[in-house]
Simulated scan of single mutants.
Amino acid sequence: MIEDMYITGVKLQKNIADRSSYVFSLPVIRNLDQLKLNKKITFFVGENGTGKSTLLEAIAVNMGFNAEGGTRNFNFASKETHSPLHQSIVVVKGVRRPRDGFFLRAESFYNVATEVDRLEDIRISTQKRFIDNYGGKSLHNQSHGESFMSLVLNRFRGNSLFILDEPEAALSPTRQLSLMVKINELEKQNCQFIISTHSPILLAYPNADIFVLNDSEIRLTVYENTEHYTITKQFLNNTEKMLSYLFEENC
C-alpha cells in the first residue's frame, strides 16, 4: 500500500541553475518530469548508458546515503565521482520514515567492505562487535557473492529502505533466487526496495513495478515486455539458431 512506502515519487526541479554536468544531457534525465512509485518493489531497467545507476545514485544520496554505498551513517569516499543530480531532484517522501536502510552498489562494494573492516578495528572493546552486523566475518574474507549475501542476510532488517544497484553482479542464478526470498520476507516487514538490474530472474519478482529507461522516457512496463525477458526466452528456446545467427553476422 502506498501509505506504507518511504518514497512515493521522484521529480526534477524546475529551475536548475547549473546544467553543465553530463547527466543533464541524458535524455531520460532531461525529460524527467515526475516519476510516481506505487509499489514497495520497483525495478529500473534499460540499456547501458541510459542513466539507471545515475538516477538510483541521485535518489540514494538525496536520501542521505553515502555515494559509494552503505548505511546513512557511512561517511567515506575513495574518490568523489558521483554526479550532482541529487541536488536537482526532489524525492517525494511518504508519511512514514524508514528506521534503517542500505545503498548497495556492485561497483563500489569493495570500498564498503573496507570501511566495515575499518569501523570494526576502531570500535570500543566493550561494545558489540561491529562486524557481527555483517555476519561476524570480514566481507573481504569471502567470495564476492558470499559477501553480498552475508550483507543481505545479516544487515538487512525490517522497516527499512533499500536501494540496490545491479545486485546480481556477484550472484549466481541460485543466489539470485535466494535474494528474491529475502526481499519477499523484508517486503512483509514494511521494507521498500528500489533496484536497478539487468537480471531477468530478479525482474520476475511478483507484483513489482518495472520502469524501462530508454533514450526518451521512463516507461512502466510488464515483465514479459522487457527486453531482458524476451531475449533470454528466445535464446534458451532457440540456442543453436541464435548462436549460428550471431556468429554468421561476425564472419
Rank of each mutant, 00 (worst) to 15 (best):
A208I: 07
D209V: 03
V112Y: 14
E224P: 01
G101P: 02
E166F: 06
L139W: 00
Y245D: 08
M149Q: 10
D132Q: 01
F130R: 07
V90H: 14
T230L: 15
L202R: 01
V116P: 05
N48G: 09
G49Q: 10
F130E: 09
S125P: 05
V181S: 14
F43I: 01
L104M: 15
L85S: 13
T230N: 12
G51T: 11
K39C: 08
G145H: 08
G101N: 05
V45M: 04
Q127M: 02
K93L: 13
K93A: 06
M242K: 15
N73Q: 13
I131F: 00
G136H: 00
K14H: 13
A17I: 13
R155E: 09
H198F: 02
D117N: 06
P173L: 15
L12D: 04
K39P: 00
G49I: 09
M1T: 09
L186W: 12
Q176A: 04
F43S: 02
V212C: 09
G69F: 05
E217Q: 15
H228Y: 15
I89Y: 10
R99A: 11
I163H: 09
Y223H: 12
H140K: 08
T226A: 04
N159M: 03
K39T: 05
D215V: 00
E57P: 06
S108A: 15
I7D: 07
G49L: 10
L153N: 14
N238Y: 11
S21M: 07
M63S: 14
L236N: 13
K93T: 12
G49W: 07
A113K: 10
T8C: 05
P167Q: 08
F43K: 02
Y6Q: 06
S160C: 07
H86A: 12
F162N: 10
L161N: 05
Q34M: 11
K128I: 07
E168T: 02
V90Y: 14
M63I: 06
Q127T: 04
N238E: 15
G64S: 14
N207I: 00
N190R: 10
A204F: 05
Q234H: 08
D100C: 06
N159D: 13
V28Y: 01
S125V: 10
F74R: 07
Q234N: 12
L104T: 06
F76G: 01
N214Y: 06
K241L: 15
E47V: 04
H198W: 02
S20M: 06
N31C: 14
M5T: 08
P84R: 13
T174R: 15
L220R: 09
L56K: 01
S25P: 02
L35N: 07
D165H: 00
D18I: 11
N75H: 11
A169F: 04
E185Y: 12
Y245W: 04
N73E: 13
E3P: 01
